[in-house]
Nucleic acid binder design. Structure first.
Lengths: 342, 342
DNA sequence: TAATTTTGTGAAAACATTTGCAAAACTATT
DNA sequence: AATAGTTTTGCAAATGTTTTCACAAAATTA
């Protein structure tokens, strides 16, 4: 039981209680093999009795690692980022790291400010979401030379090491799937694109592929819908209520697709008989929804794990180079898409 | 542009460049009003030129706040915890705090270990999920006397200040709703209960209410299903495929309810005509799903915000007492539940 | 028994800051 | 121009730890 009558338990008070010097207590934690068994036991009991907890801040100012990694996502409250963060956190926790987590809400100024805060805390590494960032952000990272990883998106020409899936390719895959099924009257629903290179890339992948096949998307079928099931349901109902309606809706992510599915059901339209609906992401639940959602799998857990592993390795081995890693997106055709009726 | 030829930019190198003493640079950050305009400008330019970033670790060992708050959830990868964490993070970020986030996966030993790690980092406060924790966890917090809040669940007899919803009451509300609709053949589906007082409380609320009304739940209709749409869909299909089937299914949370909904659809049963399905939580999407889910709203965002506000206040005002706050659960009847057929 | 090696421990310097106090530099007043 | 009052700055001590170096004690070898 800890004894808190001695206000502050620092290394010195422990040393006194154990009748050794502070250096010996330090060694007890950092190089216990150098101590005699009996001293180790004495210190052990003193530590316990005083409820002493080491002060990482004091260690950190010696240039010793802080044991923290800064993770910066647009928002935590997204099925998909939550999943990535969880996987990342687990991966680095194995190596003793704790994460400092913050979100910037797709605001570039915010991102820079948070990054600075991370650096004040002397994080041992940072993770940013997406490939594109303010020039100031890149410069800050480079000037501190601390390992950094960009997650979620992938491109060979990224300015920093990136571990993620090629979102352009994901868009291409789902568009090809819809084209292969014979659809030509296609609607597209994407989230707002500002500060979101993942969404931009997906959209570009979809649009380019459709255009190349001569299946231009008419302007009124190009929707920009905020990331929310309710907004997507609403917009889908609007578009499906016209007499002229698309035979397929390509959604920028599975949340939008889920809303679209509900919207079609609300319009008493059959999916996929009346309209095919597809997403991107393969979120949890996408395979169980009725009808099961056709989508493109982006391996969130794998991305988080690999990023965590790579960063932890770079930090502990002081090997500053992290290799790009492309986690391939993969088409997952399910029940929500079918051959177009003529 | 920062000039990184000078390897390490510390307060002293900045001081030299600005031709002042280190103390003056320190004051530049902490009490700028004490400096003459001209010196302030000189330091400003030196800071910029060197790309100096303050070292919070060095400040922290002076007993100055670390500016971090430890947040400990069972898992980040839950719609609901993600939402709470986001709200909490935003609330404390306003006061300059960054969160250290970790998960324990419903493992009590883990929880203690993570808490210790938080304390090594000298967090200014901690947030734990739920009311019940190892005795060692409570003792550790008490011995450090640092502000702590238990979130998500609520009880007047909690050992530490708690901000959350009474989950027992939530269970009671949804059970009453189902009873009011005339149901007596009721199935219950709850997640595993170990280390999860929220689920335990909800279940108790439901079971007690049903029992009091004489609507005992037969053993084979008491399901324990892991938190996952697919597991819930599977279990629901199993239970609905028997000729003897319940007229209502009460689920411990909206994810399970969503899976149950899909399961009913897969069995070609109408909801709510053939079977009523209800959840607890009012997750995002629960109001848009077809049919819209009857559930009990637990105000996640509010809980996160209030907890953040309370903790930030306790830390900055050194006012160690945080008041309990009960965020009332509220029945939200929607389309997925209806009067029982006789 | 003496000489040598190994092991265990302590003293002091270093780390990057903050802060109380006192000295120096300005301003205003006469 | 001298004095008093005010503002601004620097010095030195303090913070909680790790690390290097040195030395004594113990163990081993000759």
């Amino acid at each position: 039981m800890s004894d808190n009558n001695s206000k502050k338990a620092d290394i010195i008070s422990v040393a006194k209680a154990a009748k050794v010097s502070a250096s010996t207590v330090s060694r007890y934690f950092n190089h216990p093999e150098l101590l005699k068994n009996s001293t180790r036991r004495r210190i052990d009991s003193a530590v316990r009795k005083q409820g002493y907890i080491r002060n990482r801040a004091a260690q950190t100012i010696h240039g010793i690692r802080s044991g923290t990694i800064g993770v910066l996502v647009p928002t935590i409250d997204h099925a998909i980022f939550a999943e990535v963060v969880q996987a990342f956190s687990d991966a680095v926790a194995e190596h003793g790291f704790t994460i400092l987590l913050a979100s910037h809400g797709y605001n570039a100024k915010q991102e820079y400010a948070v990054l600075r805060k991370f650096l004040e805390h002397r994080v041992d590494g940072v993770v940013l979401t997406g490939l594109e960032h303010d020039e100031a952000v890149f410069q800050l990272i480079e000037s501190q030379d601390i390992p950094a990883v960009l997650i979620w998106n992938h491109s060979d020409s990224a300015r920093l090491p990136c571990i993620g899936a090629d979102n352009r390719r994901a868009g291409q895959l789902i568009a090809e799937h819809i084209l292969d099924l014979g659809h030509r009257d296609i609607a597209c629903m994407f989230p707002p694109m500002v500060g979101n290179d993942r969404a931009q890339d997906r959209r570009m992948g979809v649009m380019d592929t459709l255009a190349k096949a001569g299946a231009q998307v008419r302007a009124e079928w190009q929707l920009e819908t905020i990331y929310s099931i309710s907004a997507s349901k609403r917009d889908t109902i609007k578009i499906l209520s016209n007499e002229m309606r698309p035979s397929a809706i390509i959604c920028g992510n599975d949340i939008l697709a889920t809303g679209a599915l509900y919207g079609a059901q609300a319009c008493v339209l059959g999916v996929p008989q009346d309209v095919s609906i597809v997403g991107i992401g393969d979120f949890k639940g996408s395979s169980e929804i009725e009808p099961a959602l056709s989508t493109v799998r982006l391996p969130a857990v794998r991305i988080g794990q690999e990023a965590g592993r790579a960063l932890a390795h770079a930090i502990t081995q002081k090997e500053s180079s992290i290799a790009n890693l492309h986690c391939l997106p993969e088409l997952v055709p399910r029940a929500s898409s079918a051959i177009a009726k003529r």
